[in-house]
């Protein structure tokens, strides 16, 4: 496997046998870095037997290294996954290792870094290659989105977790070729944490929704979310909330948009009574089209809106619902 030494390796996260879209985003950004450095791009895939690794090749991987087994990898135990990834990293010796900053990646990634004794930069929103020494520049927002820190590693692999929904997915290219290399799993791997069962939850899928209608402190009561829910339903979307409303129990944490909540990138984002604090904008600034409704003409949310409506949400939204229903 010497011919892949010094490559860019991305961890291709899968959930229950399905490749997570952050893996395709990593192939896109990781591919860019690999081209700048003139090295190969490879994906490390760990999971149950059923997964199809060809999709990773069609999206740009020069090789996919896989460890597959049903018993060991059917449940998310970060410890077994970390041990396996460390084993692969030692076989391949990549210069750069990228992991998606999902709940799972944010837990497994640092375990991998500590087992390798390397550094790790969390939650990067941009990557670059230093023209002088070819080192990876890991760029991350710090101090609740107020500054951007440019970070470099002192040793290898240069490792970073990358925010989900920050980059576009690598496009499919049917002609791209690559090889699939099966790696045996590490010999001794005590399973000290037992996954007893999965509880299927019916959580809102804020992250993948194409329309998000978000309520902020401009909403006077929990009951008023009904109005936003009605609007969201008419647009086949879901409702989101700013942090204070989640903390007041208006909606569950699964609905929170922002730096400490979810990052969304819908086709349409409608912010109702949201002031537009930096921590909120961090979660929605990638939206394709943003409409803001706020009674205060100086609210910062207007700076990131494509269409700003200065007005009372209690007047505008019912009117909009009326028009949508064709009344």
């Amino acid at each position: 496997m010497d011919n892949y030494k010094g490559c860019v390796m991305i961890y291709a996260e899968q959930n229950n046998g399905k490749i997570h879209p952050v893996s395709y985003e990593l192939l896109n950004k990781g591919g860019e870095v690999a081209r700048k450095k003139g090295v190969k791009l490879i994906a490390a895939l760990i999971g149950p037997m059923e997964i199809d690794e060809n999709e990773l090749i069609r999206r740009g991987a020069d090789a996919v290294f896989t460890v597959k087994e049903d018993d060991t990898y059917s449940f998310p135990d970060e410890n077994t996954y970390a041990n396996t990834l460390v084993h692969m990293v030692k076989e391949v010796s990549p210069d750069i290792l990228l992991v998606g900053a999902t709940n799972f990646g944010r837990s497994m990634g640092p375990k991998v870094a500590s087992l390798l004794g390397c550094g790790l930069t969390a939650d990067c929103t941009a990557l670059d290659v230093d023209e002088e020494d070819g080192a990876l520049i890991q760029i991350r927002p710090a101090f609740s989105e107020n500054i951007l820190a440019h970070i470099k590693s002192k040793n290898f692999p240069q490792m970073a977790t990358i925010r989900f929904k920050e980059f576009d997915e690598a496009p499919i290219n049917e002609d791209h070729v690559g090889e699939i290399i099966e790696v045996s799993k590490p010999i001794s791997m005590p399973q000290l944490i037992e996954v007893i069962k999965e509880i299927k939850t019916n959580q809102v899928d804020l992250v993948n929704a194409s329309v998000v209608v978000t309520g902020g402190k401009g909403l006077k009561s929990k009951d008023d979310f009904k109005m936003l829910k009605e609007l969201a339903t008419l647009l086949d979307g879901v409702v989101g909330a700013s942090r204070p409303l989640v903390e007041d129990g208006f909606l569950g944490k699964a609905h929170q948009v922002g730096y400490s909540g979810h990052r969304v990138k819908p086709n349409l984002y409608i912010a109702c009574g949201v002031s537009g604090a930096a921590q909120h904008i961090a979660g929605m600034k990638e939206s394709q089209y943003t409409i803001a409704i706020n009674s205060d003409p100086s609210a910062p949310i207007f700076n990131v809106a494509d269409l700003g409506i200065v007005g009372d949400l209690y007047e505008v939204i019912p009117e909009l619902i009326k028009q949508l229903k064709g009344e």
Binding site: G117, C118, G119, L120, T121, I137, Q138, P141, A142, N146, I147, L148, A149, H150, I151, K152, S153, K154, N155, I281, K285, T290, P297, F302, N303, V304, A305, D306, L307, G308, I309, V310
Partner: peptide, 19 residues
């Protein structure tokens, strides 16, 4: 194992929207 090379204050994201 990591060090901060520099700190940048990001330009506030803004869109040329209509109000």
């Amino acid at each position: 194992s990591t060090f901060v090379k520099k700190i940048v204050v990001p330009k506030a994201t803004s869109r040329q929207g209509i109000k």
